[in-house]
Amino acid sequence: MSDTLNLTLKVWRQAGPDQPGEFRVYQLSDVSPDMSFLEMLDVLNEQLLAQGEEPVAFDHDCREGICGCCGLVINGQPHGPLRETTTCQLYMRHFKDGDTIVIEPWRAAAFPVVKDLIVDRTPLDRIIAAGGYVSVNTGQAPDGNAIPVPQEVAEKALDAAACIGCGACVAACKNASAMLFVSAKVSHLALLPQGHPERKKRVLSMVSQMDAEGFGACTNTYECEAACPEGVSITNIARLNREYFKALFA
């Protein structure tokens, strides 16, 4: 067992969307390096409760990197310093004794703060609702093996479909663009034969919804890819652009 850590936490506190927020500073001692980042916040919250201060609100659920609930900006980086790692899968062994850690919510105009570290990410759902699917009703499908899909195509589609919808890409982008998120879904379905019939309509509706939600433009700074906990590649954005222009000029 390695030694425990003593930490200074600067945490964003904001009572509600219309209230002003501020950083509050908390000292936390004896943090085990084998704790996850969220378990460290659990300990902070127990300490706050004992002192009569309301615990810090943050989203989380699976705590294993797949549901996309969690998402904190840690020392300026969405999901913290480790590549391809969600906040819940970040362990305290990656910090040092005496560190000061700054913890903020996602910052983006399209994601207003709900409370403390929780933001509203429903715009992402509305983008999917606009066209992120294959229009097939239950009961209509042919046999699963009716259309072979080359193995490498299926794998590539899964690489894109692996997106957990956490919104880190938006938080990382200086323009708060949602292009990586949208491109992941467009790519997933454009790669597979099942997605072909609606290919053009899908990309146009999803992009137009993205614009309507107030996300910024993509200026190719690649920050989104660096922040993505699933390693979704920016080549998907190139594919999205191709799909979009093909659909636009078709």
């Binding site: 097939v136 009961g139 699963g144 899909v149 299926a154 794998e155 589609a157 597979l192 099942q194």
Partner: peptide, 23 residues
């Protein structure tokens, strides 16, 4: 059970495939 697989494939669920492209 078999209808479930058919339906999910039609939705675009990227199941693992063999080299020949089958599930």
């Amino acid at each position: 059970s078999n209808h479930i697989i058919d339906h999910c494939v039609a939705q675009g669920v990227p199941f693992a495939r063999e080299y020949g492209g089958l599930l």
